[in-house]
Design a protein around this nucleic acid. Sequence first.
DNA 1: CTGTGAAGGACCC
DNA 2: CCCCAGGGTCCTTCATCA
Length: 751
Amino acid sequence: MAAAKPSNQMDFTSPGSNAESPGPMEQLQSSPPLSRIGLNTNKAGMEGLDKTKIDQIIIQASKGSKYYENELQKERKVKEKIDTMLKELKQLSPSAIETSVAASDNDIATIELRRDLNHIIVHVDMDAFYAAVEMRDDPSLLNVPMAVGGQSMLSTSNYLARRYGVRAAMPGFIAKKLCPQLVIVKSHFSKYQEVSQTVREILSNYDPLFSSVGLDEAYLDITEYVTELMRGKEEQVPVEEENRVTQSFGDSSVENAESLKHSLVHQTDTKLIQIDPESSQETDAKLLQIDDPESYSTDMKSQHGSNESLNDTDSHQIDDLICDSDQCLPNSYWECAEKVVSEIRERIHLTTQLTASAGIASNKMLAKIASDMNKPNGQYMIPPSREKILEFIRKLPIRKVSGIGKVTEKMLNALGIVTGADIYDKRGLLRLMFSKCSYDYFMNICLGIGSCTVHSEWERKSISTERTFPDIWKPSELFQKCHKLCYSLTEEVEESNIKGKTVTLKLKTSAFEVKQRSMTFPNPISSFADIHKAARILLETEMKNNSQLKLRLMGVRLSSLEGTSKSPSKKRSTSAAATVSLDRFFSPEEKESSTMESKRVKMSEEVQRNSEDGFETKMSEEVEGSLEDGFETSSIEMKTCLKCPICNKDVPGDNAALNLHVDECLNQSAIEEMSIDPVDVSSCSSTGNKSFELLQQPSISKTTSKLATPLSRSTIKKSQRTGKQNSKGGSTRKGKAAVSTPVKSLKSFFV
DNA sequence: CTGTGAAGGACCC
DNA sequence: CCCCAGGGTCCTTCATCA
């Protein structure tokens, strides 16, 4: 593998490659305050705005609100985190950093081995999706700044509105301040879903196994599609170079051409007629047009950020270095891919009257970034050569990378990192300052390496529902909310035939403080009775611990789902390749379409039976009371409980300790009650007798009442790197400061 | 030392 | 005057345990 060798001499070695000077303090920018409240311009259509002015308006509008105060608080925390990070940075000796750089170079060589340029990955992204749909259906919206959502929150805005700083995830009333003429349209979800489905049908012609992200995005691996197209071309029309797409489309003996025609017909039948009866005619014409070599080249050139063509002799050489000549896709394939993607977008436009943007690259991370380059209604390809990729990444603002949000950006900024090149330059520091996971993530970014895995089915990990409302504090109201939420969650749970072990209650106080309290059953549950009891107990406990609990949001979630690869129940040894993402080895036949159908109990019945029964009344009185209740009623369980060291211990006067104690007992008794509850028919097989046995050693852990301790971060952890990467440079790093950095999982982007 | 839960957060759409 | 969502995923820290 030639790849191993060049990897150490990074092409980043531009100016300041040795900028890893131990004390890059000059670069430590004191970031402006309110960075998390101000406008986030990291979005297409928001370039060149007067951010300062917009920020002023936003801040003006938010000042003094609970939300604002909470954001300030969070901002302070982040700042603190950064400060301690910088302090630790100062402690680092030059030699330590030097060593770290060497080790990092070593890591990079390893990571480089995973570079895979043999997939043509496409990221398709509908432009301002919801807004575009609304505009399409109501021409009066065409030339006005508009957004979709409500007074409290916008889902998206059109490009006109973006000129005012109005964007997704902005509350309506603030948007109005920025742009008084703004028209806010209510969202029509089902419509978006329909359109989305239409788009998906188109996409499936190019990659039947494509994966979608939300309603408006999707990843495709069109390698196979392109390959077949090219093969067809080679066989059928070996001479015609430029017109291969056309040719093969026109040739019915080619499989893809068949399928394409098929889909066209299909489309014509189902969609075009509804939208515009005449355009079916156009479809073919348009498609052919796209294939016109002239229009292609001019088109693509203008859309292509860089003028570099794939035929660059350079890239040939590089490619030869990097890839096995056998494996590497010929450049012509990538040229073809551009046409194919162009066609995809065109077809989307024809059938939906909406525009899409797309990115083409050798992995998902790059494709995603690329799709944003020529938004709206454009596409961009990052050529599959290592050199071109590095060149691209080098200048790339890190914030463009999916997974790097405002906090991570700020943290990296503090280290003087703004672009991909900076990441590479500071690799020594990063290796010392961040967890292995984060560090790996960063390295992959600056190398432009990512996952090519598109064809893996999504697996649900949790299911939840939550609701915001005007502040409430009356116990009866709180319980009512809880009940309602559990009900609707159960509906969904039953609909999807899901079972899970962990119930989490989410609370957001009127001060915007978010708390989560969870409880794990010994066996998967799904009935309203179980979910509600758990949620109810968690709520009771919280209310008990905080007598003036005032909430603006409540949510319930079920996780540790049955049949999840994470679930211990059916671990299919992913053994060997410990470091590799499960993604890769996930076996599709994991689904157990359970035997639960029979247990379907009518929700209404069940709710009625459970809603205001004795149990609940009991619970709403005194936590202690129900606690003892639990003990007494579940005499079978006495043994377990009696053995509980906490229960039998004298609880010290300390409040926190008492809480711990109570929580633990509550959880315990809760589970017992649920196991025993005669009403609970629907889940008897799982929470019935069996759980009695399991209850002997339940995995109940107490809900720690003492939270967070946000300050104790300053520690230098010795979270050792367990990776296999340090074969050469030695340095098994021990004293690594793990500044916790939230980072998109490697699973999603990297192999 | 590993695995698991619980709680808190960052991020994405 | 109206005053910051909801559904998910993953990572990290801590505690406790087997």
